[in-house]
Design a protein around this nucleic acid. Sequence first.
DNA 1: AGCACGCCGACT
DNA 2: GTCGGCGTGCTC
Length: 727
Amino acid sequence: MATAFERAEGANGRAVARVLLDSALPQLDHLFDYSVPAELADEVRVGQRVRVPFRSKDRKSFGYIIEFVSRSDFGGELAPIADIVAAVPQLTPDVWRLARAVADRAGGSAGDILRLAIPARQVRVEKKHLAAEAEAEAEAETEAAAEAEAETEAAAETEAAAEVEAAAEAEAAADPGATVEADGAARSADPREQTSPATAAASASTSEEAIAAELVTGARLAMTPSHGPERLHTGEWVGGWAAQLARIAISVHERERSVILVAPDYRDLDQLRDALAALGHPAAVRVDSRQSNGERYASFLRALDGVPRIILGNRSAVYAPAHDLGAILLWDDGDPVLAEPLTPYVHARDSALVRAEQSGAGLFFSAHARSAEVQRLVEIGYVRAQEHPPRRTRIVHADASIAPEAFAGRVPEFAARTIREGLRTGPVLVQVATPGYAPVAVCGECGELARCQACAGPIGFRVVGRASCRWCGEYATHWHCSTCDSTTLVERGMGSARTVEQFEQQFSGTRVILSDGEHPRERVDARPALVVATRGAEPLAAGGYRAVVLLDAERLLSIETLRAGEDCLRWWENAAALAAPDGICLMASGGGPVVQSFVYGRSDEWLRQELRDRQSLRYPPAVRVASVSGGPDEVERALRHLDGLRGVDFLGPTSIPAGGAARTPPGLVRAIVRFDYGQGAEVASRLRGALVADAAGASSRTRSRTPGRARPEALRLRFDDRGVFDA
DNA sequence: AGCACGCCGACT
DNA sequence: GTCGGCGTGCTC
């Protein structure tokens, strides 16, 4: 097997290297030409990290070699590459092409994407990896030689093997940490090891093999996995979705193709890891934010080997240097954690779409609740949705307002009966809206959510008995309801900690387990217990929950975001999926179209209607959006760049309130640009042009006013931010 | 970001 | 004539 260095393209006599510099400056986001000095001519490779002179002769900047050309279009004299930082070419042509396209689409710099794609180099880790690679190669050669000369002296073989072993031992003695690392890398570097007998035996069901077969031809599919957990042959329990994705991933991998498997958080990743391991795939490469930098770089180097791999990770795994990518599998793409919080804020779903398109790899969206974005892709025929609905937990609805019953404690009596019934044989899950004790205020007369008079934020009871705004802190001393004019505030719903206390009274003698964002619990056993969890933090129960009770529906739905309905469906479906096959899911309150669609399993119809509504209102994802913010002059200049474009309109500019969590300085404005998908490239490139012009013209203006500090009125772009319409 | 270049007003 | 202010634009 050739090393990454050997596979990467060299200069081959071409005198000019084109380099992408590390820089946050938008005006530097293009390739710069450098000459290749004679002493480096044999060493340089496409994708290598290099140091080059920049700005002045003795100032150096870092960058990546993107390509070699025979001559430059640059008018001036080329400076020579100063050093090669690492011989290993870290940037593969695939990943470069992806970073460029993704950045262009989002009005950002390719360098910003590369920061997500390539972990910081660690020399120690790299040395270990290269040593292991060399050792594996030597071993392979030894074996090959031994096979070829099987007829001749048998003793020679033994001797050669002993030599290799002795060398390995000497090395391990020199660096104790190397043994584990080298062993792991060497094993997984050998493709024959990847298809272990266990893999074949426990391999995919025929439908999953059929999915894999389609994916490697570039199919794009959206599927809803069956509800319920699945027992692995190791005895461990994982969500059925995780077992299914693992089988598909393995089946793609058996076709000698790489797979990228992306999940929102580490709890999901752990389930996928367990499922892969149980199916004979412990060697999957994992990249996630919980790893140390060394671990991330080690994983990165393994992905870089010229061998098909299963790469498992969170959102940045979509940028992994996969060899011969066969499919990208995305779990629960509606989870907001898949949206990258760093500029240019690209959602993993979008990067995956671009990557699949560029590479011809398959794309697989799996989720218990489909996102509006995937729904759109299905409706335009870009993604094919599964036809047959899978097995779903039995769901019943007990709306307290339809059949009012006395609240004995935290839950209506009907729900309490369901809980007691379930507790006789196993664990019961209760999903609540918020952690801690924080209840929210509603009007005592009409039940409408109370809003702050100052900023329209929700009113809570952070200080016991004193209602104040959750956003601005203003006390609600002179509050009156905007709907019915009443002045009485009452608490509605309550957090998980408070619920636990109440349950301990209401169901005395029962084990009560709390799992919330701060103290998440991954798993609970099959013994009876009342598990109280905030949405998204529900533990997996061995064998599944006897009952899943969903509280606080009206409170979750009263979250005023564009995607409240979608989010609720996702939270509820994911919780319902944790029930045992013969368990039950109880929607304990609430009403209206979202609750109805969930209870009757018609969320696809609701989603279709939702998307139609957004189409007529020009809301995402029916159209794309970009927010343009900065000083009033800067924003106005930027919007002028969009003059004359069809299918583009904008809201605002409106002033951004100063202060807040982001400590926004006063005087800034924001406009929201809406545009059809077909105009995306043009809008992005024009707004990017405005950004470059602003940054270029700015340096002088800045210096004269506030030297050194970042210019607050600088133009800022953010594409496809679903939060822009939320309060 | 920093640094060079250049165009216009004040100087030996 | 020439020095140097700072606004403008480039950085291979």
